[in-house]
Amino acid sequence: MSFSERVTYVLSHPGWPFALVALLGAAGMFLLLPRGARGGRRVGGMLAVAAFVLLGAKLPHLTGLREGVFAMLATVTVVSAVGSVTFRSPVYCAIWFALTLAGTAGLFMFQGAQFLGVATIVVYAGAILVTMLFVLMLAQPQGLSTYDRVSWEPLLGAGVGGLLVGLLTHLLRSSLATADAGFAAAKPMTENAVLVNEHVAGLGAQLFSKHLIAVEAGGSLLLVAVVAAVAITSQGVPKRQGGRYE
């Protein structure tokens, strides 16, 4: 194979558009991330939007209410995910992250996985993120400490993220095309299947029969963590010596 043939072969590969879009998105994200430098954020935003629109244009056309709901939920999730890494104030990042979780929960619900959707909200948005928010607010009420306001490895982060998105999109697209599934993967369950199914009972039966060992292992891990937390917090109690405390 001559050199020109090789170049033509590589250039005719169907993955090129995705590679370019991923590169575009990575460049946009790099410019958007808080790097400590002022300029370029507007350009970065425009590049990221362009990449998002180009990727979206690769999807099949939207027909009807259901695909519209899916597209809305997906857009909310992606945009708020970008917001959660690009904002400077940690509290705002946490709020954007909460919105990402809400979008993810909506996507779960959309596919009929009610329990997963609600559990995402309860566990992540309701417990973990609130605790994080608590710490963030206590740590810097004024929100002015510089080390909290820049991202640590913007170039590496944006590059790896772009690579991941490009590869995943390419793989998913080719597998979807071979299965001729199109939007089938994102179709909601029909109304009756959602209403009639005993989701939680089914999930519980699966967890406590097929995945019993995993559940027990997870439970033991949590128990160990609780014991450790008690051990750590109870160290501060002064010891008693002859009716007195030191």
Binding site: I95, A98, F115, V118, I121, A125, G126, F134, L195, N197
Partner: peptide, 22 residues
């Protein structure tokens, strides 16, 4: 009607209410 996780749904939204307060 017929949300199978009704109870946890109420829980989830009451945990969202914490956001309003903090």
């Amino acid at each position: 009607p017929g949300i199978d996780v009704g109870m946890i749904y109420v829980f989830a939204l009451s945990s969202i209410a914490v956001y309003g307060v903090i």
